[in-house]
């Protein structure tokens, strides 16, 4: 039964070996493709709204937020990749009420979007802003500006000594920049108006600084968390094994050993474990 006479069998064996080799990786391909959307009410003279997020056809309401007031930014809603319809109606309005604003948003895999209603009530607009999920430098915080003030057409924003947005226009976002983490003075300047507010920017955090109006036509900032990473990022991989299971005879004897251990009963096993906990871990 030489190999040359059985090419198909040889190929099947090879294929089988490849498939077995691939098996441990299989779960990765099973991950559902999802992204995130959050909703912001940034219209200073619009009262509270109810928000619905629906399938694009509008038939199926997937998510509802009630009584969302000026300045509020929702939590991120995790959604399968696709396109969705977002509508806002005055808070408490009955089903079927014509929305105050409507928008559609495309959710990409692993991407985050902010859907915002901006502008004065008589001139409401919706915008979709993409939120970046890049890592701040280890020990730093990352910020950007979303300029939503209707009373100040352009605003310059500094975080500490870092200029985050320079003469940012209404309804635009700046790029993200890293700043030293900690309590940071954020200064908004527009013409002769200037206001400084202290904001907390922990290491590893990513925030959007929403520049908003006040009832007295001044400026304020709402510091909203976009995402968060490890404060300090470890270098590289982690060594979590010493090779006892490695190689051709690895797993079977261990499995048998575990079964035997289980059969010993809790008390006996516990005593054994307590005695042998650290005996054979590598020391480095």
């Amino acid at each position: 039964m030489g190999m040359p006479s059985r090419p198909l069998a040889a190929m099947a064996a090879l294929l089988g070996a490849v498939l077995i080799a691939l098996l441990p990786v299989a779960p990765a391909s099973a991950a559902a493709a999802t992204g995130w959307v959050r909703v912001a009410h940034l219209s200073p003279d619009t009262k509270q709204v109810d928000v619905t997020l629906s399938s694009l056809s509008g038939d199926t309401v997937l998510y509802k937020l009630s009584s969302v007031g000026y300045g509020a930014v929702s939590q991120y809603i995790k959604l399968p990749v696709g396109t969705y319809a977002i509508a806002m109606v005055p808070a408490g309005a009955p089903a079927g009420t014509t929305p105050v604003v409507k928008a559609s948003v495309s959710v990409g895999q692993g991407k985050a979007e902010t859907v915002a209603a901006v502008g004065l009530n008589k001139d409401l607009q919706t915008h979709v802003y993409s939120d970046a999920l890049g890592s701040p430098a280890s020990g730093s915080a990352r910020v950007r500006v979303l300029q939503a003030s209707t009373t100040h057409p352009t605003v310059t924003v500094k975080a500490g000594s870092t200029t985050v947005a320079s003469s940012a226009k209404f309804a635009t976002t700046s790029g993200y920049v890293d700043v030293p983490a900690g309590t940071v003075p954020v200064t908004m300047t527009s013409g002769s108006t200037s206001r400084t507010m202290n904001v907390s920017l922990p290491a590893g955090s990513v925030h959007t600084l929403f520049v908003l109006d006040t009832s007295s036509h001044g400026l304020t900032v709402s510091t909203v968390l976009d995402s968060s990473a490890a404060a300090v990022t470890p270098t590289g991989s982690i060594d979590t094994g010493a090779g006892g299971l490695a190689g051709p005879v690895g797993l079977a004897p261990v499995a048998a050993g575990l079964a035997a251990l289980a059969a010993l009963g809790a008390a006996g096993a516990g005593a054994l474990l307590a005695r042998r906990r650290t005996a054979d871990l590598p020391t480095r």
């Binding site: 003279d45 000026y70 005055p90 009530n121 008589k122 922990p202 006040t214 510091t223 968390l225």
Partner: peptide
Amino acid sequence: EHVERGAARGLQDPRTAAPVPR
């Protein structure tokens, strides 16, 4: 006149986000 689009009588003070402590 204003209610249909949910207008307020003027500018409102926004709800600003509270810091999220660790």
